[in-house]
Amino acid sequence: MDSPHGAAVKAEDFGVKGPRGWVFRGVGIDAAPGSLIAVEGPSGSGRTCLLLALTGRMKPTEGHAEIGRHRLPKKMAAVRRIAALGPVPGVNDLDQALTVAEQLREGALLQRRYDGPVRALLRPRGERRASTAARIDAALDAAGLDVAALPKGPRTSVRDLERLESVRLSVAIALLGSPRLLAVDDLDLKLSGAERAEAWDLLRSLAARGTTVLAVCSEAPSDATVLRTGPEAAADPPAEPVTDPAEGSAVVPRPMNSKVTWGAESTTPHDSDGNTGTSTDTGADTSTDADADVTAAAHDSHDTKGDDDALAEAGRA
């Protein structure tokens, strides 16, 4: 598989408001291509909404973002073409009735149908099959999933996979389209400590290949650029924030090739563990059950002229 050039992720005063209030707001980030970005926070703090908004699946209410030079909210469809979703519960769940081989073939067919070049459909059937098989093998290798080692090999049912195996399978399907940005929700859900380490190693390897990776988690690694959501992120004061007089916001030191700024209306930031990755409080409304607003807020995004249905596109990513 060719290593895609990752997409830079930038945002300024980025926010989404749902029927019950602000899901998140005041998000600012400047992450270089090939960055590993972690959205850290408790369940219900707007993590998934932020992931969907940055991948063009949910229309922002205020501010703007730029994903690989495609500006949101105007270019949501363009962002969806370069940003693929790994596992996102409730949006693109694996089909438990299929085998691993069937799920992979379905993913390859959908990618070719909706995202592949038209000329690829005109190739001889044998050539198309060989190309599809090669792409699947490369994606499985990048995701670290050894299908032959599964209990029944490629005929193993998706429902019989372990949690980490399911994550790897979802990531492999997302990689079939060689995305510039890969987004993964609830990365550390139901994983042991050793499995979490394996999952983060997987995402690091993808970032090292050039793909920008955005992952939602409850606890981010120290080497990631971190966006924190929820009131817990503002419990402690920052060590030594630098104040930007022009914006009236605090800016924490820049890690590697990335910079994350604090929204002007956010509570004072902090890096509670002294991590090398930077962090920001998205200023989520504590009275809002953010993740419960995913569907409702996504529904509000449908008034963007020329955009396809956001969640339908998410299922094809």
Rank of each mutant, 00 (worst) to 15 (best):
D2I: 11
H5V: 12
G6V: 14
A7H: 10
V9S: 07
E12R: 15
D13C: 08
R20H: 15
R20N: 13
G21F: 05
W22I: 05
V23Q: 04
F24E: 07
G26I: 03
V27D: 06
V27F: 15
L36E: 04
E40F: 01
S43R: 05
T48W: 00
T48G: 01
C49P: 08
C49Q: 09
G63L: 06
H64E: 10
K75L: 01
K75G: 00
A77H: 00
A78H: 02
A78E: 09
R80L: 00
V88K: 00
D93C: 03
A101F: 02
E102L: 03
G116F: 14
A120I: 06
P124V: 09
A138G: 14
A139R: 00
D146S: 08
A148G: 10
L150Y: 09
T156W: 05
E162D: 14
L164V: 13
E165Q: 15
R168L: 01
L169H: 06
L169K: 04
A172P: 02
A172Q: 04
L176E: 12
R180M: 11
A183V: 01
W200M: 12
R204H: 09
L206Q: 05
G210K: 04
V213A: 01
C217S: 11
P221R: 04
S222A: 13
S222G: 08
L227V: 15
T229F: 02
A235D: 12
D236P: 03
P241E: 04
T243D: 12
D244F: 10
A250D: 14
E265W: 08
T267G: 09
T268V: 15
P269F: 08
D285Q: 09
D289I: 09
A292S: 14
D293E: 15
A297C: 09
D300S: 10
D300L: 15
E313S: 01
A314N: 06
